[in-house]
Nucleic acid binder design. Structure first.
Lengths: 342, 342
DNA sequence: TTTATAATCGAAAACGTTTTCGAAATTACC
DNA sequence: GGTAATTTCGAAAACGTTTTCGATTATAAA
């Protein structure tokens, strides 16, 4: 036999008072006498009462749950962001539903629909490489659902964003290569679509210009999958076709590690013959040989501020205040390790 | 002015039919005429109707949402498991709320409560290192909430589990070290509490016995935080106090990478002087120097079967069938790389 | 004692859906 | 035409909570 759930009703019946009073007692309303409040609290504790969140959701029209869509979970950067988001969410008594788009626009669209249908209180998102300012994103805005983008954003969508200054960071990385004596610097860039790949490429170009190094489009290699293997393959191409390249700026550490693997295997000295700098400061980068120089991106903090921006929007929407769009740009930092220490 | 939500009621009013009929039309009940069904479907599409999940949850007493508690998100193994779980969940139209215990029992307890209060349809969990068969776990069982444990499990909790045979896998790893000629093998083990650390230790011991190598408790080092730094420090201790050790079996790759870092820095040849084998096959292991031998643990598949076990339980509970406890033991595989290839 | 004020309570509606069961309308059959 | 069988519909209850507003009771003031 199943014991029945403890609801306001059973408490009310046992105490011979109304459901209303029970509810008020539990929520510290002022119009319930200390005596009855005490009796209610005690019985509630005894019967292990927990409010039925389904009913609360329906009544209050909020679920204290947010949705998070990211391209990949198994990814040092993204899992760190997740970490920041769920930590901050928990502090504020929010739960986080995580979905993974696998870099597929189609999946991403489905997932946005899922979250809208679930009526989450807000959505945090980093776009897939295929995605830009598409209808599904616009629908979120249109429905006035609190919405924050981070990292892989779309510039033209009007919403709060948490990013780094990719262009500036990339410039700094390339200037670091120049400062250690590199004269001919290749760039292994990310896919054509994502804004941060574009910005890092622009940063690369700008740093060259600033230092009177001619830009050569043949020295730019474009990743499709942003993988270890691509790094390996492009390193091979660079060495075979441009033996005078003495520095490589790579879109992200994972790819840079592929580059190092090729260079190591072919006994090309890093950094003496070719200096390499990555991006994102994956954990891996500090344990490989040679240790990889990189750009540190505050991933955990990104998660924290993305959640806090979202929370602000959630509150604003609840109080029917006008929406405030806020952009947070977090600082990056060049981490110099062996791969550029000439 | 806010346009009001599309509900069954507004559709019903516009078509001058009852809410009941609208609901039935949308859910393909047989007792609604093709004509009215068509009218309903069309208007629903036009008004972009999506059922209010809060109301559905309340009515059906299920939310198509499960909870997942793990010790750490930023962890190659766990993020792979997450990947498997949310992929499989999505196929079955479930969403996943993820919580991170940070290896803290106290946090874990809070989170279990959170999920119970949220009334998720089921819970998947990997215990924190501090946790064992505690009250909060028992409460899940007691409330008859579908529940599956994986990886870090408690042997005495009666519930479905997805694990590997840690003891067997550890034995195989140690026997592999023996097969390449190691005579004196140290073990850097995990914390005292978790079952898998215990089992791997037992596997280590058993492999020694089987090969007539005397067990020496001084060659066993116990991690507390299971970190890179501990690997580094224990490697130092081993080299300084037991210079004749020629093989090390390490609880997990992260720690093993710390070991390799120390050995590399001190020009101790791996595997010639000391062979090293890790556990879990983190991505990192194939890109460091020397490439790390390890035990491959099918993390993605673990996630998939954990979800499927949970789904079975959810269905069983819904149909009020007796609970079936099922244990899935997945295969592991020794991956031989440079760190043991003598 | 009467009246006014404050403290305490509860009825009822609402949130939006699902489902049961009976009523009404249509069709089939003779 | 009437009756029976079938199709189509809708009223209403239920899920469990929150909140408004009016009613009742106890206390204070006159």
């Amino acid at each position: 036999m199943k014991e029945k759930e403890t609801t306001l009703k059973v408490i009310a019946e046992k105490l011979n008072i109304s459901i209303t009073t029970v509810s008020k007692a539990l929520k510290d309303y002022s119009d319930v006498s200390p005596k009855t409040r005490e009796r209610v609290l005690e019985l509630a504790r005894e019967l292990n009462y927990t409010p039925n969140s389904f009913a609360v959701n329906l009544r209050t029209k909020e679920s204290k749950t947010i949705g998070l869509i990211i391209p990949e979970v198994v990814h040092h950067f993204f899992s760190s962001v997740i970490n920041g988001i769920i930590a901050e969410a928990e502090k504020n008594e929010y739960l986080v539903i995580i979905l993974q788009s696998n870099e597929s626009l189609e999946l991403e669209k489905k997932q946005v629909q899922l979250l809208i249908n679930k009526r989450v209180d807000g959505i945090i998102m980093s776009l897939s490489n295929e995605s830009n300012d598409d209808d599904h994103i616009r629908e979120i805005i249109q429905r006035n659902i609190p919405f924050v983008m981070f990292d892989k954003i779309s510039k033209i969508i009007p919403c709060s964003k948490v990013i780094i200054d990719d262009q500036k960071a990339a410039s700094a990385a390339v200037e670091h290569l120049i400062s250690v004596g590199c004269k001919k610097i290749a760039h292994i860039r990310g896919p054509v679509n994502p804004q941060n790949a574009i910005d890092r490429f622009l940063g690369y170009k700008k740093a060259l210009e600033k230092n009177q190094i001619p830009f050569d489009k043949n020295l730019v290699y474009t990743c499709v999958r942003v993988s270890f293997e691509e790094g390996y393959a492009f390193a091979k191409e660079i060495c075979e076709n441009h033996p005078d390249v003495d520095g490589i700026f790579v879109i992200t550490d994972l790819v840079a590690v592929g580059v190092l693997a090729y260079l190591n295997e072919h006994h090309i000295k890093v950094p003496e013959q070719i200096a390499v700098i990555g991006f994102s400061n994956w954990f891996m980068s500090q344990v490989i040989q040679p240790k990889l120089s990189t750009v540190d991106q505050p991933s955990y903090e990104m998660g924290v501020s993305a959640f806090n921006l979202l929370l602000k929007e959630i509150k604003a929407v609840k109080e029917e205040q006008p929406k405030v769009i806020e952009n947070v740009v977090l600082d990056t930092q060049i981490i110099v390790r062996e791969s550029t220490k000439k």
